[in-house]
């Protein structure tokens, strides 16, 4: 097998589609708050997001990518039996995650790409164990537990951190200012910085969802040296930027026009908290949902009394999306894997 094997090409294309989807929706969500508060125009946001997302993906995306590629399922063990299994398994995983994300997006469900790809890779691991390729104990349950724990923790951390930042802004700046509207104008500049920050953080964490499986396949085939090469991260980065430019601007537009309540001080608190939580998780090699963290951060600003109205029913929707995403993605990946093997691919 080489780069031009149809299965490898399919993996690359599926990865690009996933990257496009992440750029079009998740990145756009993270950036939409800057447009909503009037800090940046849509054009400026797309340029900033494009540059920093790419840089984040390329220079800081390696850790999470290697978690997706080989942190959960022991591909090195499977490789010893047949490298082909890993390639097909990873193709099944990215296809399953891609299908689920596409479906969820059509129905506007708050589903995370990170949760989907983790569930799908796990599905591949489980079906391998089921068919005796590996033992169930070979699946890295500890890493999986850490990942799931981080999904619960990251929105809470976002909420707590955003709460703290906004309380500080309020007591140190807003309440001392003679003209609170002038303060908002000053925060516009800070929000330009947080827009860069959040794009960088997002790129560093979410590129893995698109190129993790591809990276696993290429390393199994010996086409890379076992670490995640920069060019794979660059492919993911380019895909996400294309997603933002070709579709994400509409999402940004929709969000930007509807969340006018999120003034620059509030937007800054929510984005800074989100970006920080995400980047800490990227450093800890944990794939989390930027969107869920952002929702947590917005609620944190609301809890601090910074927003006119926050709808907490979104929490229930997010929790049910957690519960449903992993089994659905896992089962789909298992079925696709079995199907692909069945037809002799």
């Amino acid at each position: 097998m080489d780069f031009f094997d149809p299965v490898v090409i399919a993996l690359g294309l599926a990865g690009l589609y996933m990257a496009w989807n992440i750029g079009a929706n998740d990145l756009a969500n993270a950036m939409g708050t800057s447009v909503g508060s009037g800090a940046l125009s849509i054009k400026q946001v797309i340029i900033i997001a494009g540059v920093f997302e790419f840089v984040g993906a390329v220079f800081f995306g390696k850790r999470v990518t290697s978690t997706i590629a080989k942190g959960i399922v022991p591909i090195d063990t499977i490789k010893l039996i047949d490298p082909h299994l890993v390639v097909v398994g990873m193709l099944a995983a990215i296809l399953a995650a891609g299908f689920w994300i596409t479906f969820a997006t059509f129905y506007n469900l708050p589903v995370s790409t990170s949760h989907s790809i983790v569930g799908a890779v796990l599905g591949f691991g489980l079906v391998s164990a089921h068919s005796g390729i590996i033992a169930y104990a070979d699946i890295n349950w500890l890493v999986l537990a850490k990942i799931v724990g981080s999904w619960l923790l990251s929105p809470l951390l976002g909420a707590a951190f955003a709460y703290l930042i906004f309380v500080l802004i309020r007591s140190l700046i807003l309440q001392r200012a003679d003209d609170p509207y002038a303060v908002e104008k000053k925060f516009v500049f800070l929000q330009v910085l947080t827009a860069c920050y959040i794009a960088f953080a997002h790129g560093s964490n979410d590129v893995a969802n698109a190129v993790g499986p591809l990276s696993a396949a290429l390393s199994t085939l010996g086409l890379t040296d076992g670490t995640v090469p920069i060019w794979i991260l660059a492919v993911g980065g380019v895909g996400m930027v294309i997603g933002l430019a070709t579709w994400g601007y509409r999402v940004i537009e929709t969000i930007g026009t509807k969340i006018t309540d999120l003034t620059p001080t509030r937007g800054f608190a929510a984005q800074f908290a989100t970006a920080t939580v995400v980047i800490v998780h990227s450093y800890g090699s944990l794939p989390i949902s930027t969107t869920h963290t952002l929702v947590g951060s917005v609620i944190g600003v609301g809890l601090a009394g910074g927003l006119a109205a926050v709808d907490l029913s979104v929490i229930g929707k997010i929790i049910s999306s957690w519960i449903i995403t992993v089994p659905v993605a896992a089962l789909t990946a298992a079925l696709i894997f079995t199907g692909l093997m069945g037809i002799g691919i």
């Binding site: 708050p110 579709w247 509807k258 969340i259 926050v310 029913s313």
Partner: peptide, 10 residues
């Protein structure tokens, strides 16, 4: 709309 968004929190 082909959109997943954070809008519903607002």
């Amino acid at each position: 709309k082909y959109i997943r968004s954070v809008l519903s929190v607002f």
